[in-house]
C-alpha cells in the first residue's frame, strides 16, 4: 500500500520533501555546526597529547560521516519532523479528515501516509549530509581558525583518509534505514492515535521515545554488521 501508487503522483512526495526537509534544515545545520565546534575542541585536546593534531580534520569527518551525522540527524528529525507528522495525522483523524477521505473512496494510506513516508526516507540522507558538512565546517572553524591547526593538513588528511564507499557509503545506508524507521514510527503512531487531544499527545510522545530508541538500537546493529564486513 505504501509502494507504487504514491510514486505515480510525485508532486505529493515533492511537497512533503519540502515540508519535512526544508523546515528541518535550520535545526540540522545549526546543530551540525555546534557538534563540529565541540569536536574541534575535544578532538584537538585528545590528538595533541599524541602529537597528531593535524589529524583533527580526519577525526571530525570520520566521526560525523560514519556515526554522528546519521544518528544525531535521525534523533533531531524524530523530534522536529516525526512529532509534526504524528500530530498532523492524529489531528486529521480527530477532525474526521481521515474518515471523510475514506468516505470519498480515497485510500488515506496511499493519499496521506505514503507520500509522507517516502519523503522522510528521501530527506533523511540529505539532512544527514548537511549535518556532516556543517559539522566539518564547525571543526575547521575551531581547529584551523581558532586553535591554529594547519589548514593544509586538516583538509589533506580528510581527502586521503575518508573512503567514499566504506565511510560515506556506510553513513548513507544508516541514514536511509533511520529515515525509514523514524518516518514509519511517526506515521504509525499518528494513524493509530486515539482521536482525542490526550490520544494525540500520547502518540507524539511515543513517536519520540520509540523512534529514538529504535535509531540507537539499529545503529549498534548496523555498525556491528558494517565492521564485520
Amino acid at each position: 500500500m505504501l509502494f507504487g501508487p504514491a510514486f505515480r503522483r510525485f508532486g505529493l512526495i515533492r511537497d512533503q520533501i519540502h515540508f519535512l526537509g526544508n523546515y528541518s534544515l535550520a535545526i540540522i545545520a545549526v546543530s551540525g555546526l555546534f557538534v563540529g565546534f565541540v569536536f574541534g575542541l575535544q578532538g584537538y585536546y585528545t590528538l595533541q597529547r599524541y602529537g597528531s593534531s593535524e589529524a583533527l580534520g580526519l577525526l571530525v569527518t570520520l566521526t560525523l560521516v560514519r556515526e554522528l551525522g546519521p544518528v544525531v540527524t535521525a534523533l533531531l528529525f524524530a523530534g522536529r519532523a516525526g512529532t509534526s507528522l504524528t500530530a498532523e495525522i492524529g489531528l486529521m483523524k480527530a477532525g474526521e479528515q481521515i474518515s471523510v477521505m475514506e468516505m470519498m473512496a480515497v485510500d488515506p494510506v496511499q493519499r496521506v501516509l505514503a507520500p509522507r513516508f517516502w519523503a522522510g526516507v528521501i530527506v533523511m540522507p540529505l539532512l544527514a549530509a548537511v549535518f556532516s558538512a556543517t559539522g566539518i565546517i564547525g571543526g575547521w572553524v575551531v581547529g584551523v581558525l581558532m586553535i591554529g591547526v594547519d589548514a593544509g593538513s586538516f583538509w589533506s588528511q580528510i581527502q586521503g583518509g575518508v573512503d567514499v564507499w566504506q565511510d560515506v557509503g556506510n553513513g548513507l545506508i544508516k541514514s536511509v534505514v533511520f529515515g525509514f524507521t523514524v518516518t514509519f514510527v511517526a506515521l504509525l503512531q499518528g494513524f493509530e492515535a486515539q482521536a482525542t487531544p490526550e490520544g494525540v499527545s500520547k502518540a507524539t510522545t511515543r513517536t519520540v521515545v520509540m523512534a529514538s530508541l529504535a535509531v540507537l538500537g539499529l545503529d549498534f546493529i548496523l555498525t556491528a554488521m558494517m565492521f564485520s564486513l
Binding site: 477532525g95 474526521e96 479528515q97 468516505m103 473512496a105
Partner: peptide, 17 residues
C-alpha cells in the same frame, strides 16, 4: 466503488485544514 455513489457530510464538516 459503492462509496463513489455516496456523499457524506460529517457533523463538523471535516474540511481539510
Amino acid at each position: 466503488a459503492a462509496r463513489r455513489r455516496m456523499g457524506m457530510l460529517f457533523q463538523f464538516g471535516a474540511l481539510f485544514a
